[in-house]
Design a protein around this nucleic acid. Structure first.
Lengths: 150, 150
DNA sequence: GATTAATAGTTAAATGAATGAACTATTGAT
DNA sequence: ATCAATAGTTCATTCATTTAACTATTAATC
């Protein structure tokens, strides 16, 4: 049983991460085009940013089963945002890329999100922000570690 | 267009919040009983912690429409975790409370989550953690503000 | 006081997101 | 050559969410 002040920090973290998540997600959703969800935008982003991307890569990154990725990709493929191409060497593998339309849509939305995040982070001094991000990064590594060893 | 180093901070924040969210949610899900989702646990928590709780309160806190709350409460009501009682004065209003079973289930799961968060936060010096939470709190207020004025 | 507004909540249809189990196709190992 | 492992898909089911239409009740106004 942790000491009383640690317990308070734990409670605070739980409450803050919940609220910041909900508010943040809600604001991100507002930046989306009407026919796109935030998950779909995150998918476009990951495919756009990675040199080569397979459904398995996405499943790992999003921490869901591969069948969830298939369904997600199908929805976006129907809208003409994503292409599938088979690897010639290993014909089990599928590579995902954005179509021109997908790329354009991604860029437009990502621009809006950047603008939003910019306006949020503007409320902080650069030094405070950098310290925050250092700890956030460390938190990220800790979580990765726990997830790896489970 | 923000300067180049600010742009880097924005990118970093976007990437970190995405990854920390996914990893965090995945770990929280692991603490859940098989017949409960994390949303359902968050609902139990909010009802448990608030003196009196209506569907409208929940809709506000979770930033979803009231019909989404009705559906959520129905699922949990069927499992016998939640009670509905009408306000005698204003008969439009419904008060939500936990049944004994709901309370017991909540306590058991919340204990496990606390244990998890404790083990995560143990990787940080208290001073670093407190500074992090101060900035996180500030971020929370900024997001609330934006959400309020939209 | 009767009519009209607003509020609290629910219902129903549609869509998106996730899982688990069974399956195909392909590659790797013994 | 056979058997196991890997990549991806399909299908049925459940959960979460939105929109629009609806009931019931309360508040406001004329």
């Amino acid at each position: 049983m942790p000491p009383i002040d640690i317990k308070h920090l734990i409670d605070q973290y739980i409450e803050l991460s919940f609220s910041v998540n909900k508010s943040g997600e809600s604001l991100v959703r507002d930046q989306m085009n009407d026919d796109m969800t935030s998950d779909q935008h995150y998918t476009l982003r990951y495919i756009y940013q990675s040199k080569s991307c397979t459904p398995s890569d996405l499943a790992k990154k999003f921490q869901v089963k591969k069948s969830a990725i298939t369904a997600m990709i199908n929805r976006m493929w129907k809208k003409g945002w994503i292409q599938r191409t088979r690897d010639e060497k290993d014909r089990r593998v599928v590579y995902l890329t954005l179509t021109e339309e997908g790329k354009a849509l991604y860029m437009k939305t990502e621009e809006r999100i950047h603008h939003l995040v910019d306006s949020i982070l503007n409320n902080f001094e650069q030094e405070e922000l950098e310290q925050f991000l250092r700890t956030y990064q460390k938190l990220h590594r800790v979580l990765e570690d726990i997830n790896k060893h489970k």
